[in-house]
Design a protein around this nucleic acid. Structure first.
Lengths: 113, 113
DNA sequence: TCTATATTTCCAGAATTATGGACATATCCC
DNA sequence: GGGATATGTCCATAATTCTGGAAATATAGA
């Protein structure tokens, strides 16, 4: 990932409706949601939501799939991983004690089995 | 962390100069840098950089400390952790197979001992 | 083909954010 | 105190992003 793509991805998330979409989709795990359902769930007009979803797609944070009249969205796990990795890349100069807790806590927020 | 703080933190990072500052500081590990050195390192005027640093501080992504005439900045690890955790919160509905690789890859970008 | 549904594209006004000159403050050393 | 250094604040202009009405596209079913 280069820095300009990272900026796009972070800009995509730096907007309340879009951040809500991302979190809504990440909470559904491997499930997916149609554009219209997302718009309804968050109370945003469908055309506004369509722009937001396009931005998230371009940023590779979500993926789209056509199914009949619907377009189904899901989190793009590869793109998400790339962004998180980019943020902490080369951190802590080989001293895991510094940033280890950051990663561990992220890990426990997710998949807290 | 509430969503509006997450949006502020993501907006803080969604700007090339500020993202560069964050990555510069995270790469230095537990080390720190003076405002002027950061500005010089990134080729940004000191007053512009000062605004950027204030935004990163408010977002709790970096911390400031006065030392004589200088102000020394470092990554705020607690704030960074809170942001990353918020992004993946409650993800994957207990199916670590889905998002586990995302976290593992983040872990290996950082502290790749 | 006609109609309803699902989504996207186009567009322009509103709102927000970025930038850096000029000036203010704060500290250090003589 | 006076001068040099380090950083921050104020502010106006420029640039970018947000929003949703209106129209377009695409698919499904009768």
């Amino acid at each position: 990932m280069d820095i300009s793509h990272a900026v796009s991805a972070l800009s995509a998330l730096a907007q309340e409706s879009r951040l809500k979409v991302f979190r809504l989709l990440i909470r559904t795990g491997s499930k997916e949601m149609a554009a219209g359902d997302i718009a309804r769930a968050l109370g945003v007009p469908h055309n506004t939501m369509s722009s937001h979803l396009a931005i998230l797609c371009r940023a590779k944070l979500v993926q789209a799939r056509k199914a009949g009249r619907s377009v189904i969205y899901a989190v793009d796990l590869d793109g998400t991983r790339a962004l998180l990795s980019f943020l902490v890349e080369d951190c802590c100069q080989g001293e895991p004690a510094v940033c280890g807790p950051v990663i561990e806590s992220t890990l426990s927020a997710c998949c807290s089995e």
